[in-house]
Amino acid sequence: MARNLDAKCRQCRREGEKLFLKGEKCFTDKCSIERRAYAPGQHGQKSGQRLSGYGQQLREKQKIRRIYGILERQFRKTFAEAERRKGQTGENLLQLLESRLDAVAYRMGFGASRAEARQVVRHNGVLVNGQRVNIPSYNVRPGDVVQLADHSKAQLRSKGALEAAESRGFPEWLEVNVKEAKGVFKSYPARDELPPSINEGLVVELYSR
């Protein structure tokens, strides 16, 4: 399976904002954005660089891909599905990305980061409606019950991730029982419930060229 092996902190610095790829480190002053808020590389500190319209669209697409940890081919397939659905393509895109099993597991606190949540899924650590599912891109639907398998509940890493997620609060579209390590995907998130720093309209413009 193909993966993006670029250093997580370099990806955040390249996009100029926190993408929360390193778990709890992103919430401390050890975050690379806090220490070096400029792009990596020898030309990273040069200011005044202006992007063209295409450049802005491309950067936004790369940012969203990095946030959700998916590669170009899979992202294009997700965008094509968003176009087929009724409603606004950009909002459909974000809803499809947030309904991926690895994203839901991360939001429920089953992993400190999306990469860790994906690993838990791949290692048979997550059940959907009582059935073991190990496909990170599995589409969770409203009403589905997602929970940690017994062997994953016992891990200290999972307990720590759940406690940290509880302290930050869970999204409105999820209902999570921390003690049982179980949650319900109540509905697809509304656009105003998702980060305002994401400009999905630029991605729609990019693929509409």
Rank of each mutant, 00 (worst) to 15 (best):
2 A>P: 12
2 A>I: 13
2 A>L: 04
3 R>I: 13
4 N>G: 04
4 N>D: 11
4 N>Y: 03
5 L>C: 04
5 L>E: 08
6 D>N: 14
6 D>V: 14
6 D>K: 12
6 D>Q: 13
7 A>L: 13
8 K>W: 06
8 K>P: 14
9 C>P: 00
9 C>M: 12
10 R>I: 04
10 R>Y: 08
10 R>T: 14
11 Q>A: 12
11 Q>V: 15
11 Q>P: 02
12 C>W: 00
12 C>V: 00
12 C>S: 03
13 R>W: 06
13 R>A: 09
13 R>D: 01
13 R>F: 06
14 R>N: 15
14 R>H: 11
14 R>G: 04
14 R>E: 15
14 R>C: 10
15 E>M: 07
15 E>S: 15
15 E>G: 07
17 E>S: 09
17 E>M: 14
17 E>W: 00
17 E>I: 12
17 E>F: 08
18 K>S: 13
18 K>G: 02
18 K>A: 05
18 K>C: 10
20 F>Q: 03
20 F>R: 00
20 F>M: 08
20 F>S: 12
21 L>R: 01
22 K>G: 00
22 K>W: 03
23 G>W: 10
23 G>S: 10
24 E>W: 09
24 E>P: 02
24 E>I: 12
24 E>N: 10
25 K>P: 02
25 K>T: 14
26 C>I: 06
26 C>R: 08
26 C>N: 12
26 C>D: 05
27 F>Y: 14
27 F>Q: 04
28 T>L: 09
28 T>I: 04
28 T>Q: 07
28 T>F: 02
28 T>G: 10
28 T>R: 08
28 T>A: 04
29 D>R: 11
29 D>F: 03
29 D>C: 03
29 D>K: 13
29 D>L: 10
31 C>N: 06
31 C>Y: 03
31 C>P: 06
32 S>H: 12
32 S>W: 00
32 S>C: 06
33 I>V: 15
33 I>F: 02
35 R>N: 15
36 R>Y: 03
36 R>A: 07
36 R>V: 05
36 R>I: 10
36 R>H: 09
37 A>F: 08
37 A>M: 10
37 A>T: 01
37 A>W: 04
37 A>Y: 04
37 A>V: 01
38 Y>D: 06
38 Y>V: 02
39 A>S: 06
39 A>G: 03
39 A>M: 06
40 P>T: 00
40 P>Y: 01
40 P>L: 01
40 P>G: 03
40 P>M: 08
41 G>I: 10
41 G>T: 05
42 Q>E: 12
42 Q>W: 05
42 Q>S: 06
43 H>G: 04
43 H>S: 04
43 H>K: 14
43 H>D: 10
43 H>C: 01
43 H>L: 11
43 H>F: 05
44 G>Y: 01
44 G>L: 04
45 Q>H: 14
45 Q>F: 05
46 K>I: 15
46 K>Y: 02
46 K>F: 07
47 S>F: 10
47 S>A: 11
47 S>G: 14
47 S>T: 15
47 S>R: 11
48 G>D: 07
48 G>F: 09
48 G>N: 11
48 G>M: 03
48 G>S: 09
